[in-house]
Amino acid sequence: MRILIVDDEPAMHDSYRRSFASAASSRDDALSAMAADLFGEDAAEDDNDAISFYCVHHMQGLDAVAEVERSRGGDQPFAVAFIDVRMPPGLDGKETARRIRAADPDINIVIVTGYSDFSPVEISKVAGPADKIFYIAKPFEVAEIVQTATALAQRWEADRALKVAREQLSRQVIQLEEQAAELAANEMKAIHVANHDSLTEAPNRLAFLRALGERSKQPGRFAVGMIDLDRFKLVNDTLGHLAGDELIRAICAILQETIPAGGLVARLGGDEFGLLFEAAGEQAAEMACTRVVHACSVELKVLGHSVQAAASAGVVTAGEGDNRDPIDLIRRADLALNDAKRSGRGIARLFDESMDEGVRVRRRIETGLSQAIARD
């Protein structure tokens, strides 16, 4: 353990040497005798865990400060510095302590003096913190110096071990935070992939069904539309699938621009899109889909080729007392879309019950059951 001693009196340095030499000799003798009594002669040679001190002596403060700076740079720091207060004509003990503390924040400083040039508070202000600065009066006892050095050296070692542990813990915390951030990013990416179409980045069928289910639980009338591109297979067959993909992306952008404010456009698969938007009534919903269809009837440049795009649409509305089952709403909108396709394409059709024989049959059964119940 490295100890720094700063005093301008040669006799004091001799006192320090004798103190640490005497302590080491008596300690070694006592421990060897105790080990021999308890474990035998062989064990006595190896049983010596006491701290060994290596003392570095300097007569002036400037030399001591330079020594501390070198020791920090060479990774051989001092555990304790014993500093005299009066050291003419160089730095006094207060300034020496201040500079040593600035060079090594971890060192324990012991002011050794027989004078009261500076109060402990004054020295603590410049060389603190208070728990790393101590005082011994001259003349000192051997045991006093040795016990102080031993206690402070043990504390210094413990502080260093604690600092290393804290740094390791801090690195581990940072690593865990980085891993948590990475996991969160991966989770968000996975959620995005699970809910969005890879070609258009629009919501996919799963996201559309979830949004439709949530909207069905809320009051107010809304509309569900189904959009299908006209003669899309012809584009794929003549220009290739890359051209078809480019056309789908272009149509998706048009739909997102022309859907009523706050509406949702989702790619359900292939060349089919779903629309979800607020509608004041059936006529308003049909007009909104008609505008969307007209916007899709445009000539587009696809991979250097001119393509005449076109689309058909079916739409159904759901009010407060209507059937709001998401699957059934999509089915009805799809029936309206099929009717639009049969009627010549490039148009929007509003669903009515005549398009669904199954709905009429179910309604007749419901009416018959109601009448049967009424007649008991």
Rank of each mutant, 00 (worst) to 15 (best):
M1F: 03
M1A: 15
A24D: 13
S25L: 09
R27I: 06
D28R: 15
D28G: 09
M34S: 13
E41Y: 01
D42Q: 14
A43H: 09
A43M: 14
E45L: 12
D46E: 11
D46W: 14
A50Y: 11
S52G: 12
V56S: 10
E67R: 09
E67P: 04
S71P: 07
S71M: 04
A79C: 10
A79L: 04
R86D: 11
P88N: 04
E95V: 15
N108R: 12
N108Y: 12
E122K: 04
P129C: 03
K132E: 11
Y135P: 05
I136V: 14
A143G: 06
T150N: 08
A153P: 02
R155D: 08
R160S: 08
R160A: 13
A161K: 09
A165P: 04
L169K: 06
L169M: 11
L176Y: 05
A181K: 10
E182M: 11
L183K: 08
L183N: 07
N186P: 03
M188F: 04
K189R: 15
A190H: 04
H192W: 15
H192P: 09
V193K: 08
N195P: 05
E201M: 11
A211H: 07
G213A: 14
Q218L: 14
P219Q: 09
R221Y: 01
G225T: 09
L229E: 05
L239I: 09
G244W: 08
E246R: 14
E246K: 14
E246Y: 02
I248N: 00
I248K: 02
A250Y: 10
I254R: 12
Q256Y: 02
E257I: 07
G262M: 02
G262A: 02
L276Q: 06
F277C: 07
E278V: 13
A284D: 15
R291E: 12
V293I: 15
H294Y: 10
V298E: 13
L300V: 03
Q308W: 06
Q308K: 08
A309M: 11
A310R: 11
A310Y: 07
A310D: 09
A311M: 06
A311Y: 03
G314L: 10
T317C: 15
G321Y: 03
A333Y: 01
D334N: 10
D334L: 07
A336T: 01
R342N: 14
G346S: 07
I347V: 15
A348V: 07
L350W: 03
G358Y: 01
G358C: 00
R363A: 00
L369S: 00
L369K: 00
S370P: 00
S370M: 09
S370A: 15
A372H: 01
A372C: 03
